[in-house]
């Protein structure tokens, strides 16, 4: 095997190699600690994960967490998109919203979580938390995406008297799509993390958050790590789906 071929194999399988190295370090650390309560071995966590997956409770909890994540995500996405478009088209709207966006970005996440726990039920507060935390990120990303469209191209479309519908569907939407999908990809897994954290604090029934909390209370570290692994896998799968959509939808970009 020549050097170039070896290099290409390493590059191709580098994510798997990284995961392998991580598990190896974990295994060595678990042997060194040798206390299951503090750091169980990877095999035990994997066994626990298989046991979780085979039970109905796991899927109910995952379904509950994902439905809250998607609801919060959809609300913040829609709101941010509408306001970014309005702010882009009418600059005073953007100027009026800028301080609100800055403030909402600066509010400590924990304050949002605690306040929403006071105001709402345990089922709905994770949705509000997710929406409030994701909104400023989406708004800034979408507004920048709109502003970064080449002004020359926009002027060209107007000079050639291209119809408004074509300007929106053939110019604006395709040109902001890469940035929007980048934003969605990075936001989607972050959003799952936020919702799980909110579920832990709100003690939301049928959720991954409460399942993790129960594992902690029961001092079942293997189960807690199994839930964590499940959350990581779900987030990774969601990011992968968005990445595949992006590859399909944005063929025109330089590779």
């Amino acid at each position: 095997m020549n050097k170039a071929k070896l290099k290409s194999i390493i590059v191709r399988f580098s994510p798997l190699i990284t995961v392998g190295v991580f598990i190896l370090i974990w295994y060595i650390a678990a042997i060194a600690v040798d206390i299951e309560l503090i750091l169980p071995r990877p095999a035990l966590v994997f066994k626990e994960l298989l046991a979780l997956i085979s039970g109905k409770t796991f899927w109910t909890a995952v379904g509950g967490t994902l439905s809250r994540s998607f609801t919060g995500f959809a609300i913040s996405f829609a709101l941010a998109m509408i306001l970014a478009v309005a702010g882009f088209a009418i600059k005073p709207i953007h100027r009026a919203f800028s301080p609100l966006v800055i403030i909402s970005r600066a509010i400590p996440t924990m304050s949002v979580i605690l306040l929403s726990l006071i105001w709402l039920t345990s089922q709905t507060s994770p949705i509000l938390i997710s929406s409030l935390i994701m909104f400023p990120m989406f708004y800034s990303d979408f507004y920048s995406a709109l502003n970064n469209i080449d002004k020359g191209v926009i002027d060209m479309a107007k000079l050639y008297k291209v119809g408004a519908k074509d300007i929106v569907t053939r110019l604006y939407i395709p040109n902001i799509l890469p940035s929007v999908l980048d934003s969605v990809r990075s936001g989607i897994s972050f959003n799952v993390k936020i919702v799980i954290a909110a579920e832990v604090l709100a003690q939301t029934r049928q959720s991954m958050g409460i399942s993790m909390q129960i594992s902690r209370v029961m001092l079942d570290t293997a189960s807690l790590l199994a839930w964590t692994a499940a959350a990581v896998a779900i987030s990774y799968a969601l990011e992968l789906i968005v990445e595949l959509i992006k590859r399909f939808a944005v063929k025109w970009r330089r590779a």
Binding site: G152, V153, D155, Y160, R170, V250, R253
Partner: peptide, 13 residues
Amino acid sequence: SYIFQNPTLLPNM
């Protein structure tokens, strides 16, 4: 019609 220094082509088309 216009021809400018920058071709102003739509990158997505």
